[in-house]
Design a protein around this nucleic acid. Structure first.
Lengths: 111, 111
DNA sequence: GTGGTAGTTTACCGACTAGCTAATTAACCG
DNA sequence: CGGTTAATTAGCTAGTCGGTAAACTACCAC
């Protein structure tokens, strides 16, 4: 994967396990074991995912006794959303097209 | 990469060449050679990128004589933005934190 | 037909990724 | 100290990714 910040962010989001970890962290900080619990993968695999998320700036990690609590950092999501917002006009216009299409359908078959 | 739709979308966006292609397509449809022109990579590489973008639903392709014009399809970007919007409160609140931090700094060093 | 232009497919390569197991570090508890 | 829990590191495998060169398809013009 490329090393520019947006690529790292999108790359981190391109994995359902990592997105699920972010979703869990939206409910508050959690330890690595707590984050791992819902998944059928080993702790080292989770550890790697956390490193990817950390590199993307999507989480930060503290130190408390023997635990290393993770917390959500959403700033990169703001950046990513900002990048996408440039295209908003396009999906809004395609929504308009869908809307028009639905209207046509709801008018019933032309005969 | 995982095969769920969001993963495919984010995976497609996790490459600067592909994001540049989308940016170019925001100015209107283009042929493969037109899209390839700004890049120092071969045509087959561009062809692969286009396939990734197509699989993510980010572009669609027509057929006109010997050309296969590409056009932007922004609907997946809407989906991705929608997914991220769940976290908006977090980046807004961390902006608040930054704001507060800056205020603290601007008050000058406490002594 | 020949030849040129537009683009894709195939086969290959090196780098990276996601997963595993096993070993290791770090911090606590008794 | 030894034992337990929390988490990371190391080393491996299998698969994917971004790129290439070479061959192929499709269309147009002569």
């Amino acid at each position: 994967m490329a090393t520019d910040q947006l690529s790292v962010i999108f790359g981190a989001l391109a994995d359902p396990t990592r997105r699920a970890i972010l979703a869990r962290l939206a409910d508050g900080p959690a330890t690595v074991n707590e984050l791992a619990e819902p998944f059928a993968i080993t702790l080292p695999a989770i550890s790697k995912h956390l490193k990817v998320l950390e590199r993307a700036g999507l989480i930060s990690r503290g130190r408390e006794k023997q635990w290393r609590p993770c917390r959500l950092e959403a700033e990169p999501l703001r950046e990513a959303t900002e990048w996408m917002s440039r295209y908003r006009q396009f999906w809004e216009s395609s929504f308009d097209k869908l809307d028009a299409h639905l209207r046509t359908i709801l008018k019933g078959p032309e005969q």
